[in-house]
Simulated scan of single mutants.
Amino acid sequence: MAGLREKQKASRKRALVEAASLLFKQHGYEAAKIGEIAERAEVSVGTFYNYFPSKADLLLAIVSLEVEEVLHQGEAVLGWSHDSAPEAICRLASIYYDHSLVYLTKEMWRTAMALAIQHPETPFSDRYRMLDSELVKQVTKLVEVLQAQSLLRAEIDPAAFGEVLFMSLNGLFTTYTMSEDMTLEDLNQSLSTHMRAVCG
């Protein structure tokens, strides 16, 4: 019975996340109502609050789902042979970028970023930073792979260079979320130009 309860809880939580993702996309984060999210997920408002203390926590759950999925997809890149460091980094970052609007919109990303920055001492901000840290670790692992394949110099500090690369990738993504006119193609083109400069 305990296993069944856990499955039911996971199913309700996933339903709430999916309902919120859809309604945030349709109406915008601010306009979407908790009652509407609960109704679409076929749970009561009281049940909603059993899973998420606030709408912001639900947004964070969507961001977490997004990052967890791209981390899983990114693992494959670590096992590939690569022709060059810029090419390899672009392949990994393109996975991050191409998946970025599956569950979220640019407006949702801006809201999540703003909440993390405006309230740095909150669990929301802590979790957001932790997700970034997991992405930094994966980029750092790729640096180590590229060093093993003699595509980056052995004397480079992988952790420091991984962080530099992630800051560049994240900066480009922030620019992308701030412009409704910038396309994924534009973003990936900027990425390619930056990585050739950084790894030249």
Rank of each mutant, 00 (worst) to 15 (best):
E155D: 15
N50G: 02
K55L: 07
H82A: 07
R153C: 05
A116P: 05
V63A: 05
Y97K: 03
E180F: 01
G35T: 13
M178Q: 11
A159Y: 10
E107R: 11
E69D: 10
A88I: 07
S11A: 15
W80Y: 11
A148Q: 14
E155I: 05
L184R: 08
S168T: 10
E68F: 11
H82C: 02
S133F: 12
A61F: 01
V67N: 05
H119Q: 14
L135T: 07
Q73L: 15
E155N: 10
K33F: 00
S168H: 01
P53T: 06
F161I: 00
P120I: 04
R196V: 05
H194F: 14
S190F: 09
G3H: 07
L22E: 15
L191A: 10
M113I: 15
M178F: 04
K9C: 00
V198D: 00
S179M: 11
E39C: 00
E30A: 15
A31N: 15
S150L: 04
Y176L: 05
L71S: 04
V63R: 07
L71Y: 09
I62W: 07
A112C: 11
A116S: 15
F48T: 04
L115T: 01
H27F: 12
T175G: 13
R91M: 09
T111I: 12
D126F: 14
V43R: 02
C90R: 06
T183E: 02
G35R: 13
L152V: 02
E155L: 08
A116Q: 02
M195S: 03
A41G: 10
G46I: 09
F48Y: 13
I37L: 04
S179T: 09
L78G: 00
A112H: 09
V164E: 14
K141F: 02
W109L: 08
R127E: 15
P120T: 10
K106P: 05
G46R: 12
R91T: 14
Y49L: 02
R12V: 14
L16Y: 06
H82F: 09
R5M: 10
I156S: 01
Q118K: 10
E87T: 10
Y49G: 03
W109K: 02
A10N: 13
A41N: 13
L58D: 01
S94R: 11
E66N: 15
L104V: 04
